[in-house]
Amino acid sequence: MPIPMEWYLGLGGVIFAVGMFGFLVRRNMFVMLLSIELMLNAVNITMVTFSHYLNDLRGQIFTIFIMTVAAAEAAIGLAIIVTLFRNKATIQADEIKEMNG
């Protein structure tokens, strides 16, 4: 008995929600970045699932692009954190609030 597609999709959704939750509540910017990686991974799982169940490779192609962007985003994000830490001496997201009204 094959596994229904919906199960995989549900798994992706749960992981996405966990990543989102992490992004929204954590103060540490490293963990926020990791949360983004989690969310992207959840999307990757969904894409590959579609690819498998619809017999179409385009889902996997998308996944490759998402991974590319994720790598670029991680590099830039870490560079920003480094710069931020150098200037503000903190990586806690809620201690940087120059934009408050």
Binding site: G13, A17, V25, Y53, N55, D56, R58
Partner: peptide, 28 residues
């Protein structure tokens, strides 16, 4: 944020349960 995340999960489940598969592609 927790409430929101649970809401998003429920929305995903709702969406997934109503999912209609598209046409099958050539890469079996």
């Amino acid at each position: 944020a927790a409430a929101l995340s649970i809401g998003v999960v429920l929305m995903f489940f709702f969406g997934v349960s109503n999912f209609a598969k598209g046409p099958s592609g050539p890469y079996t």
